[in-house]
Computed example of a mutant assay.
Amino acid sequence: MSIRHSLLSLLAEGDRHGYQLRQEFEARTGGTWPVNIGQVYTTLGRLCRDGLAEEVGKQDDGSVTYRITPAGKAEVDTWWSRPVPRAAPDRDETSIKVALALSSPGVDVLAVLETEREEILRALQAYTRAKTRIPDHPTGGELARLLVLDQQIFTAEAQARWLDHCEQRLAATTQGSAR
């Protein structure tokens, strides 16, 4: 997830301080991905260092207000116009865990698969329950939350299917080597 581009997109709408950026990010993503305030300020520091944002004032409470620069606006416009790269897929801990379990002595791979499946099913139930709390005609943050929940459900369903596939492949491989 690009916190960098997310913060730039929010700054493109107007000057904000870090806490406002954090609140707005969480509201716009339906509260699904909480972001650490330290990460917000670290990212803002890098944006300033890279000439994409600048400090424009300090409040009495010490909070700093930031503004997007023309270079930052150009970068966020480019981000909107390009697809998210798929060449280097995200590291999926479940996939890594299963792959390592296959080659680790003494690990019950089927038990690992079952443990992961149980967690995925628990998550699916939680996502589905969360969807029931969203109105039938959502707007704004509710719509964002609904779309993010839909994505999480689709991803969890795909992972559950993949775990089933792993189990079938493992069974077929075991049967083939027993002959």
Rank of each mutant, 00 (worst) to 15 (best):
A111E: 15
P138M: 09
H137T: 13
V109M: 03
V64T: 09
A74Q: 11
L110V: 13
S103R: 15
R129E: 15
R129I: 06
R82V: 07
R117V: 03
P85S: 08
L102E: 14
V112M: 05
P89L: 07
I134P: 01
R122G: 10
T94C: 04
A123M: 12
K131W: 07
A99H: 10
T94N: 08
R117C: 00
V107I: 15
D90S: 11
A87E: 15
A88Q: 13
E116N: 01
L102V: 08
L143A: 09
D77P: 02
E75S: 07
G106V: 08
I68D: 00
A88I: 14
P85W: 08
D136P: 06
R133K: 11
P70T: 04
A126C: 09
I134F: 06
A88F: 15
S81E: 13
G72F: 01
L100F: 09
A111H: 13
E142K: 05
L102N: 09
K97R: 15
P135I: 04
Q125K: 10
A87I: 13
T65M: 09
S81C: 05
I120K: 05
E142N: 06
Q125I: 08
R82C: 07
D77R: 11
I134A: 02
G141A: 12
R117G: 00
Y127D: 04
V64Q: 01
A71G: 01
R86A: 13
V98D: 03
V109W: 06
A111G: 08
E142Y: 02
I134M: 04
E93D: 12
A71F: 06
P89I: 06
L143M: 12
E142D: 14
R67C: 05
V109C: 06
R117S: 05
L143V: 05
V107G: 05
R86G: 13
P135C: 04
R129M: 12
D136F: 11
R67K: 13
K97E: 13
A126D: 12
A111R: 13
W79V: 06
T132V: 10
R82P: 00
L113H: 01
H137N: 13
L110K: 12
G141K: 11
P135N: 05
R82Q: 15
T139E: 15
L100E: 13
L143E: 10
A123G: 11
T139D: 12
I134T: 01
A101I: 07
A130R: 07
A88L: 15
G106T: 07
A74I: 02
Y66G: 00
P83V: 07
P138R: 03
W79P: 00
V112S: 03
P89K: 07
A101Q: 06
L100C: 08
S81Q: 15
A87N: 11
D90P: 04
L110Y: 10
R82S: 12
E75V: 02
P89Y: 07
R133P: 03
S103G: 06
